[in-house]
Simulated assay, not measured.
Amino acid sequence: MNTVNVVYEGRVAKVEMSRPDVLNAMDGEMLSELLAAFKEVRDSEADVLVISGAGRGFSSGGDIKSMLSDMDESAFSSVMYTISQMITELYTMPKLTISAIHGAAAGLGFSLALACDHVIAHETAILSMNFIGIGLIPDGGGHFFMEKRLGETKAKQMIWEGRRLSAEGAMQAGLIDQMVAGDMKAAVEEKISEWLEKPVAAMIETKRIYTSRRAADLETILSLETSSQYKMRQTKDHKEGISSFLEKRQPQFSGK
């Protein structure tokens, strides 16, 4: 794989996004490789999966320049299908999953992190569901995971605001499960050790019961996000959002 590293350490599988020069922004290649990595881990002997990002951050989200600026309908449909498959694969993974966030986790990167069973963030991390800034809606199950953790009303408000949250703010809101002040790697290893000392099969069975009940809801949300995202891509506000992002200026939205 070119953009994703997969390493096995005993009963632990570690998947690292590796496009550090663009803050691990997800292009079509990385999405496909993440999906392949998750399928590989599903079939492995690992009990725990840890997802992280190389370089300065976890993931800045979708690669706007490659995925949003000049993409025809066929390419868009293919990307959204891969996103849906990747997120479903991760959410229903019969393993215990951890997302280890340092630096930025934004947009699709934040959705990916929230799909895990346990979200750990360093105290310096910045988290945001910031699709509104380019006239789009959350994808990657963002609506599903935000509602699950916040409830509908607070999820809507946070999505509409699109504001950046500190790790402390995300912890207080209930969007992450653990904040780390010191050594991030040591904190992740401590959580892994804690889990591996428990009857993991029973823990995974509890997870299976919950995900079996909610998987259909996630699939519905992913389908709605795909159709709605396509609709939003046709709006003037999205085109203005993209232009302002590429030109590094404040957008001037018109509501159309």
Rank of each mutant, 00 (worst) to 15 (best):
Phe58Pro: 11
Asn5Thr: 05
Glu147Gly: 08
Gln85Gly: 05
Arg208Thr: 11
Arg149Ile: 02
Thr153Leu: 13
Leu31Pro: 05
Ser52Pro: 09
Glu73Leu: 10
Ala201Glu: 15
Arg213Val: 08
Gly141Ala: 12
Glu168Ala: 14
Asp117Trp: 01
Ala201Gln: 09
Glu161Gln: 07
Ile176Trp: 08
Ser78Gln: 13
Glu225Arg: 08
Tyr81Trp: 06
Ser128Asp: 08
Leu96Trp: 06
Leu175Pro: 01
Gly174Lys: 07
Val7Gly: 02
Phe38Thr: 04
Ala216Leu: 12
Asp237Ile: 01
Thr92Gly: 03
Met203Thr: 06
Ile209Ser: 12
Lys231Cys: 10
Leu34Asn: 00
Met67Val: 11
Glu45Asp: 15
Ser66Asn: 09
Phe58Leu: 09
Met30His: 02
Leu34Asp: 00
Thr3Glu: 01
Val6Gln: 05
Ala46Phe: 10
Thr235Gly: 03
Glu205Thr: 06
Arg42Cys: 05
Asp117Ser: 00
Ser52Thr: 14
Phe76Pro: 04
Asp21Tyr: 10
Asp21Phe: 11
Ser32His: 10
Pro94Val: 00
Arg164Thr: 04
Gln157Asn: 02
Pro94Ile: 04
Thr3Leu: 00
Leu35Cys: 08
Lys231Val: 12
Leu175Cys: 05
Asp139Pro: 00
Leu49Trp: 10
Thr235Pro: 06
Arg42Tyr: 05
Gly57Leu: 04
Leu222Lys: 08
Thr153Asp: 14
Ser228Thr: 15
Met232His: 11
Pro199Val: 03
Ala202Phe: 11
Ser74Tyr: 09
Leu136Asp: 08
Asp43Tyr: 04
Asn5His: 06
Glu9Lys: 13
Pro251His: 08
Arg164His: 07
Ala186Met: 13
Ser18Lys: 07
Arg249Asp: 12
Ile242Val: 10
Met146Arg: 04
Thr3Val: 00
Asp70Asn: 13
Glu29Asp: 07
Lys39Gly: 14
Ile98Met: 02
Ala46Asp: 08
Ala201Asp: 15
Gly57Glu: 12
Val180Ile: 15
Leu224Thr: 12
Ser223Arg: 15
Tyr91Val: 02
Ala125Gly: 07
Gly255Arg: 09
Leu68Gln: 06
Leu34Trp: 03
Glu9Trp: 02
Arg163His: 05
Arg213Gly: 08
Thr97Val: 03
Met129Tyr: 12
Ser52Leu: 03
Ser193Leu: 06
Glu29Asn: 02
Leu175Met: 13
Ile126Thr: 15
Met30Pro: 00
Tyr81Thr: 14
Met26Ile: 11
Lys236Trp: 09
Thr153Gln: 14
Ser69Val: 14
Ala170Tyr: 05
Gly28Val: 01
Leu23Lys: 11
Met158Cys: 00
Lys191Asn: 00
Gly135Lys: 06
Ile159Phe: 02
His118Asp: 04
Asp47Trp: 05
Ser223Pro: 08
Val4His: 04
Asn5Glu: 04
Asp217Pro: 07
Val41Asp: 08
Leu31Asn: 09
Asn24Phe: 01
Asp183Glu: 13
Lys156Tyr: 12
Ala115Lys: 01
Asp237Cys: 03
Ile204Glu: 04
Arg233Leu: 05
Gly107Ser: 13
Ser243Trp: 14
Asp237Ser: 02
Phe145Val: 10
Val119Asp: 05
Arg214Met: 14
Thr97Ala: 05
Thr92Arg: 06
Ala37Met: 06
Leu34His: 03
Glu123Phe: 13
Gly255Thr: 09
Arg233Asn: 10
Ile51Gln: 07
Met1Thr: 03
Ser227Tyr: 09
Asn2Phe: 00
Lys239Asn: 10
